[in-house]
Amino acid sequence: MRITASEVAVGTGAAAELPPVSVEFSPESPAVLALDTDRRPTVLSLVVSGRMTPTAGSVLLDGRADAATLRTAVALVDTPIVAEPAADLPLGVVIREELAFARHPARDARELLEALDARDYAKAPIRLLPGALRTRLLAETAAARPGVRALVLTSPERHGGSPDDLAATIAGLAARGFAVLTVTTPATRELLLKADRS
């Protein structure tokens, strides 16, 4: 599966919510895109997932324009405001709710927390979770949804954590056949590219 966004924009001129941006990602070629300002990563995430119609440009899934299929195939991971859990919710509750949305039984939440060495955080507010672990857990629950073949990680750097750990999460998802786009800051993009080369 390949998603290609060509010169997508929302609004025009200096006040554009999203100036023209192009990006392509697939399981073979995960992408890391840097955007300034706090809202633009969210706006781009909505556009490439078929949840917002751009003012200009196009988003194609395997060469075809199909917003409905995009919405099913692309999951947003921890996207600010749109898909981020409430900061004070206990991690265990968040994971159970996310997996229930994916039609998985409650026992799968326990197994996931065990598998990722996160059981000790089960009753802690999700805001206290280390950044890399938070991203990995939320990516795993998003990946578990029926029909999901692509993941957009939005601004994962805002929760801290090592770029090496984030790069490992991205690589692991791609190796399992998911197309992955990470939308982040210019500084984090450089660190992720360095981690990928090492």
Rank of each mutant, 00 (worst) to 15 (best):
P163H: 11
A115K: 11
V8L: 13
L166S: 03
R158S: 10
A31V: 02
P125L: 07
P54H: 09
A187C: 00
V183S: 00
F178V: 04
R134F: 07
F178W: 14
P19H: 09
L193H: 09
P30D: 10
T53Y: 06
V93H: 06
D196K: 14
T188D: 12
A174N: 03
R103Y: 08
K123L: 14
D117P: 00
V183G: 00
A67H: 06
G92T: 03
T12M: 13
T184D: 04
F101P: 00
T4G: 04
F101R: 12
T182N: 10
A144Q: 06
R158D: 09
A139L: 12
V77W: 07
S22D: 09
D196I: 01
P90D: 03
L181D: 05
V94Q: 04
I81N: 01
G147H: 09
L61T: 00
L192R: 03
M1G: 08
E7T: 10
V10W: 13
K194I: 14
S58A: 15
P146W: 11
P186I: 04
A68L: 11
I126N: 00
A143Y: 06
R197N: 11
E140P: 04
D38H: 10
G161M: 14
K123H: 14
A15Y: 09
G63T: 08
D36E: 15
G160V: 09
V74T: 02
P90Y: 07
L138M: 15
H159N: 13
G63V: 10
L166N: 05
P105T: 01
V43G: 02
T185W: 12
T79K: 01
V47F: 10
L116M: 11
I3C: 05
V74Q: 06
L112R: 02
E114W: 08
A87G: 01
R197I: 00
V93Q: 10
D108T: 13
T184I: 07
T135W: 06
A142G: 03
A144F: 10
S26W: 10
D38Q: 11
E190C: 04
I95L: 08
D66F: 09
G147I: 07
H159A: 15
D117E: 14
E157A: 15
I126H: 00
P125Y: 08
T154M: 12
P90T: 01
L60Y: 02
P20Y: 12
V183W: 01
D66V: 05
A115F: 07
D165G: 02
A187S: 09
L44I: 05
P54D: 05
T37L: 12
T169Y: 10
T42E: 13
S58F: 03
A115D: 13
V180L: 11
E84R: 10
L44V: 04
R96T: 05
G50T: 06
G172C: 13
P186Q: 08
P130Y: 07
L193T: 08
A9E: 14
E190I: 04
R176T: 02
T55E: 07
L46N: 00
E24Y: 05
L153K: 06
V183H: 00
P105N: 03
T185N: 09
A139W: 12
P20R: 09
A83V: 01
L129E: 01
A118H: 05
